[in-house]
Write a protein that binds this DNA or RNA. Structure first.
Lengths: 106, 106
DNA sequence: TTGCTTAATGGTAAAATAACCAACAATTAA
DNA sequence: TTAATTGTTGGTTATTTTACCATTAAGCAA
């Protein structure tokens, strides 16, 4: 597998995180496993939309699903995902700092 | 700013990472700053394509650019991005392990 | 069984993303 | 100045992603 193909595999997982709803699902699941109905309640959109977002996360190996009667229990497969979000905040804060510094110069 | 908007800001950065070429650029810049020409040499595509990928990374605050004569020097703004890639590998390895376990069951 | 509830799937249209080519802007060297 | 080189931007087309609606499948309860 060449470098590009190797990078492509990684981006499949990153792409799965690259949607506000899916990111919120991940953050929510970090506090413990949740039922589909609980996750769905976080959003104001069609049930099928959330179901498909969860499918994307499942296919990426980020979450796993388990039937519980009529409902489905979802849980996070790897905790490290959350640590990354701290880094994202660093990027955001760095950008904000630079913008402010830039304003002072003008 | 509500939770969805907050998540949206974060996904802007994640989306910037969610392309094989951009991920390779990030990984390359982790070894030190690079000229555009050096980064471009990693790929087999149009120069404008790479230029636009770099613009995406710059807009996300992941890299910064500095003119050096005819060339442009790019560098990584935050090192933590790289640590995340370790996590991605964990997700991949976990998935592979599960697949193998699944095969044994059948 | 017969409804009732809930998540998942199929289909479609709109929006976002990505790649190429062509043209441009900036810099260097003759 | 003029010509050559290099990175960026504009424009177009093809692909991918996303959200909704309608339908289906699975499980529960009367």
């Amino acid at each position: 597998m060449n470098k590009y193909e190797s990078a492509k595999v990684k981006t499949e997982i990153i792409k799965a995180m690259a949607h506000p709803a899916r990111l919120m699902i991940i953050e929510s699941l970090d506090n413990g496993e949740k039922l589909f109905s609980e996750l769905f309640a976080l959003f104001d959109c069609d049930k099928s939309t959330i179901s498909k977002h969860l499918l994307v996360l499942k296919n990426a190996g980020i979450v796993s699903a388990q039937k519980k009667g009529l409902d489905v229990l979802y849980k996070l497969e790897t905790k490290c995902i959350i640590k990354f979000l701290d880094c994202i905040n660093t990027v955001i804060n760095t950008s904000i700092k630079k913008q402010k510094a830039c304003l002072r110069c003008k």
